[in-house]
Simulated assay, not measured.
Amino acid sequence: MNLQQLRYVVATAEHRTMTDAARSLYIAQPALSRAIRDLERELGMTLFARSGRGVVVTAHGRRVVKLAREALDAVHEIEALATNTPSSGSELRVASTPSLEPGLAGRLLPAYVAEHPDVRVHIVRCEGREAVVSAVREQRADLGLTDLPVPTDLVSHPVERQEIVLISPPGADLPNPVPLARLNGLRLVLPAPGSPRRREFDHIFATYGVRPIPAVETDERGGWLRAVRDGKASLLWYRGMADQAARTGLVVRSLDPQLKKIIAVVHARKRLTTVAQDFLTLAEGGSAA
């Protein structure tokens, strides 16, 4: 038995399907199923029973899940013992995605530094939500700023809802705002098929019954705006990218109805350092728009 298996058990109990649990943990579903089976064999008991397309927690499983949560909390408490005392020259590391960094650097950080001039703040630049999650898990960052959802082994504190807009080449024959129905047949820059971000977009398209044309499919974010500038397609992204896009001559339009994503500060399930808790308090009381 190891801590990873305990995290897998908790995630499976919370999501009630192996597929959703694996997705929240950013691992393959067969790997999760195998780890759960190995743990069940080791314990000599069944933790989850199949029910339709999902799973239900057995009586033994409920007890194990409760103890697993307590064990993970205890581990995080132990890890925090040496890091909970503020001192002069303390350091705070905040991981952020590129589209959220302008709000972080432009509003939250100046306000925080003004109140805590002795704290050295570093932005850990991450190419996407998965990289933010990894930075926090691997303790390369104390906190992360990203959109939801994140895996269940992290704690999230929503701080705002950010609008998704359509960024298009100049000359595109589109109204402002753009009815979501106009996305049907529209050429779009999209994340790679099968990626977590692409699945979220596909869910939005299915919800509103639209079928855009995937003109560019890549997870290389650096090329997204370049593809729009080259006239290849339009891009759905956050309002925070609007200024950067407009400076390069692109056109930013709202959608009708508006689409918004929840932005949150995330951290590991452990007691935060004082400097991290102070930043979280500021973020929850302000905005990272």
Results as ranks from 00 to 15, higher is better:
114 A>T: 14
84 N>T: 15
96 S>E: 11
73 D>P: 11
126 C>L: 00
72 L>Q: 05
116 H>T: 11
145 L>H: 01
135 A>V: 00
122 H>M: 15
65 V>S: 01
61 G>C: 07
152 T>F: 11
92 L>F: 08
68 A>L: 00
72 L>A: 07
114 A>L: 10
88 S>F: 14
127 E>L: 06
66 K>W: 01
68 A>M: 01
62 R>Q: 12
57 V>Q: 04
60 H>Y: 11
68 A>K: 01
82 A>V: 12
93 R>Q: 09
135 A>R: 00
148 L>A: 05
63 R>H: 11
80 A>Q: 01
84 N>K: 14
122 H>L: 14
103 G>T: 09
114 A>C: 09
137 R>G: 05
141 A>V: 14
135 A>G: 03
131 A>G: 05
122 H>G: 12
131 A>K: 14
96 S>R: 01
89 G>R: 09
142 D>T: 08
66 K>I: 06
117 P>Q: 10
162 Q>A: 13
98 P>N: 07
130 E>L: 10
101 E>D: 10
125 R>I: 11
62 R>V: 08
159 V>W: 03
76 H>Q: 14
140 R>F: 05
75 V>Y: 06
149 P>A: 08
70 E>P: 14
127 E>R: 13
138 E>A: 12
100 L>Y: 10
106 G>M: 04
144 G>H: 08
118 D>S: 15
83 T>L: 14
63 R>E: 07
143 L>D: 03
159 V>S: 01
93 R>N: 07
75 V>G: 02
135 A>F: 00
116 H>M: 09
116 H>L: 05
161 R>I: 05
155 V>T: 06
148 L>S: 01
87 S>D: 13
126 C>P: 06
111 A>I: 06
130 E>C: 12
100 L>N: 04
103 G>I: 02
78 I>H: 11
73 D>E: 09
129 R>L: 05
141 A>M: 06
63 R>N: 06
83 T>P: 12
85 T>P: 06
154 L>Y: 01
97 T>W: 00
69 R>N: 10
143 L>R: 02
57 V>R: 07
141 A>Q: 05
67 L>D: 07
84 N>Q: 15
150 V>C: 00
59 A>P: 15
71 A>G: 04
117 P>S: 08
60 H>L: 13
107 R>Q: 12
132 V>D: 05
67 L>V: 06
83 T>N: 13
60 H>N: 14
149 P>Y: 09
76 H>G: 15
100 L>Q: 08
153 D>W: 03
162 Q>G: 06
96 S>M: 02
134 S>Q: 12
92 L>Y: 07
140 R>N: 04
121 V>T: 11
138 E>M: 12
84 N>V: 15
123 I>P: 00
92 L>S: 07
79 E>T: 08
103 G>F: 04
64 V>F: 02
97 T>F: 02
148 L>E: 00
162 Q>D: 13
158 P>N: 07
121 V>L: 09
140 R>C: 10
71 A>W: 01
95 A>M: 12
118 D>L: 15
131 A>Q: 12
